[in-house]
Amino acid sequence: MSAPEPLVPRVLLTKSFIDSHDRAIKTIALALRDGGCEVILVDYETPSDVVDVAIDEDVDVIGVSFMSGGQVAVTQAIVTALGEAGRGDLPVVVGGTIRPFDVDDLESSGVRAIFRGGEKLERVVETFRDLAAESRRRRAE
């Protein structure tokens, strides 16, 4: 079976169920929608929830939003859980309140992009689309 380019990239956008700040994630969801992506929008309780939903929904890329804590610990847990589930190939993007001291740890945990606010929506959408296309290509190989 041929794996076509993602005509409609599928993106999982998620944040912790205890993080009530959802303005950013909803804005990004609408921007991605207008950028031609299908966005699954859910809260997670545990990092493994993210992996379960990502697999069932067959998403091409995962975006995690942080507004109040857990940036590094949770991201590392998600990346690890993806690896354990055999889906280490799925790109993870983080955004929100990312402190300067979070950046190095996030990058070394394998996060593909970090959006710290003030980023052009256009560029955010482009990043998601590019990562989705790459992700789908890689899986097809």
Partner: peptide, 15 residues
């Protein structure tokens, strides 16, 4: 703030 104890699984990063 959300009424969860620190030993609840998966909130450690936020304590």
């Amino acid at each position: 703030s959300m009424g969860i104890d620190p030993d609840f699984p998966a909130v450690q990063g936020a304590i």
